[in-house]
Design a protein around this nucleic acid. Structure first.
Lengths: 203, 203
DNA sequence: TGAAGTAACATACAATATGTATGAAACTTA
DNA sequence: TAAGTTTCATACATATTGTATGTTACTTCA
C-alpha cells in the first residue's frame, strides 16, 4: 500500500506549479529564448513529456508564468495604493508608481513582463494577460477619480494604457540609469507633472 | 575578361543591403524567431555563409535591420514635424504623434522596432539604437521648447523617454483597437492633454 | 601583367532545440 | 479488482543555429 496517493488534480497542480516556479526563475534570468525545455524540466524535477502534456507549447508555459508574475505584482500594487483609498489622483498615482518601480527591480518583472512578453506572446495577448491585473488597477483608480470629478473628461481605457506604458518605460529607464537615486527622483517628478496635467484643477 | 568586376566594398555593400532588405520584410511579417537564416538568405539570393561572414550573428543582422527601419522613420518624422519650425510645443508634438502613428501602420515598425527589438537585443541596446534617431528628435523638440520657456523645468532625457513610450503604446493600442477612427481621435486628445500639462501656460 | 595574398562567399558538418509518438505508471471508476 | 483514463517518461524526427573547411573573387605588389 502506497503512502503517496495523490489525486490527479493534485498531481497536475504540483507539476504545473513546479514548472511555473522554474519558469519564473529561469526566464527571468536568461530570457525566454535563452532557456531550453530540458533545462526547464530539470529545474522542475520532471521530464519534458510532463511539460508538453500540461502545456501544449513552450509559449503556453510562458503565458502562465507571465500571468503568475503579473498577479503577484498586482497584489503588491493593490496593497501599496488601493484604488478606493482617500487622497487625490496625483497622490494615489504617485504611490502606485513608487510601488511599481520597486516591483520592477525584480528581474522577473523586467524580463518576463516588460521585455519578452510582447515578443513571445504577441502584443495583443500580452496586454490581454495584463488587462485583469495591473491595467485593471489603473482603470479602477482613473474611474474613481473621474467619478470624483478630479479627472478631466477623457476616455479611461486608452488613458490607462498610456499611463501603464509610462510606468513601464520609467522602470526600464530607471534600471538602465547610472545614478539610480537622481534618476528615480526625476522620473517621479515627471510622472507627477504628467498626472497633474490630467486633473481638473491645476494648482 | 569578366564584365562583372565589382570592388570588394561594392560586394559587401550589395550583400548587406540584400540581407537587410530581406530582413525588413521577413522579420516584419513573421517576427525574429519566426524566420530562419535559411529563409533569410534565400530571399536575399545568397548563402548562409555570406550572412555569417557579414554579420557575426543573426541578432547582429537584426540590429542593423532595426537601425535601418529607425532611420527611415526618423526621416519621415523629421519631415512631418521639424524641430526648428514655428508653432508651440503642443502643436509640434501633435504633428509628430500623428506622423508617428502613420509610420506605425507599417508592420516593419510595429514588429521590428516595438515588439521584437527589446527582446532580441535587450532593452539597453534597443534604446541605444533608437537614441540617435527618434529619441534624438524628441529631445531636440523638448530642448527648443525649454529654451523658448514653453516647457516646465524638467530633465529632458527621461522626459523624452517617457514621451516616446507614450507614442509607442499609442501606436500599438491604436493598431489593436476595433474602431480605428475613434481610437485615434481619443489617443491624440489624450496625448495633447498630457503634453499640455508639461507646458508653462495651461490656457 | 601575373602571381601571391586577402576578403567574400558557399557547402558540409556538429550541436542543440522543439515538438511528437509511443509506451509505462499512477489514478479513477464501476 | 479490473477496465479505462489521465499523467508522465523516453525515444525519435525535424529544424535551426553557428562553425569549419574549401573555393571563388578581388587586391596588391613585383
Amino acid at each position: 500500500m502506497k503512502v503517496s496517493r495523490r489525486t490527479q488534480e493534485e498531481r497536475t497542480a504540483a507539476t504545473r506549479a513546479a514548472l511555473i516556479e522554474a519558469g519564473r526563475k529561469l526566464f527571468a534570468e536568461h530570457g525566454y529564448a535563452g532557456v531550453g525545455t530540458e533545462t526547464l524540466v530539470r529545474a522542475a524535477g520532471i521530464s519534458r513529456g510532463a511539460l508538453y502534456h500540461q502545456f501544449g507549447d513552450k509559449t503556453e508555459l510562458f503565458a502562465e508564468v507571465l500571468a503568475a508574475v503579473e498577479a503577484d505584482v498586482a497584489r503588491r500594487l493593490a496593497a501599496a495604493a488601493p484604488a478606493g483609498d482617500g487622497g487625490d489622483l496625483v497622490a494615489v498615482m504617485t504611490r502606485a508608481v513608487e510601488a511599481w518601480l520597486d516591483a520592477c527591480e525584480d528581474p522577473e518583472v523586467q524580463r518576463i513582463v516588460l521585455i519578452d512578453g510582447p515578443s513571445v506572446l504577441g502584443w495583443v495577448r500580452w496586454r490581454a494577460i495584463c488587462q485583469p491585473h495591473i491595467l485593471g488597477l489603473i482603470e479602477a483608480v482613473l474611474t474613481r477619480a473621474a467619478a470624483d470629478g478630479e479627472l478631466r473628461s477623457l476616455p479611461i481605457r486608452p488613458l490607462a494604457h498610456l499611463l501603464l506604458a509610462i510606468a513601464d518605460e520609467a522602470a526600464m529607464y530607471l534600471h538602465a540609469a547610472d545614478d539610480q537615486t537622481t534618476a528615480r527622483a526625476e522620473i517621479v517628478r515627471i510622472v507627477d507633472t504628467l498626472v497633474r496635467g490630467l486633473t481638473v484643477r491645476e494648482a
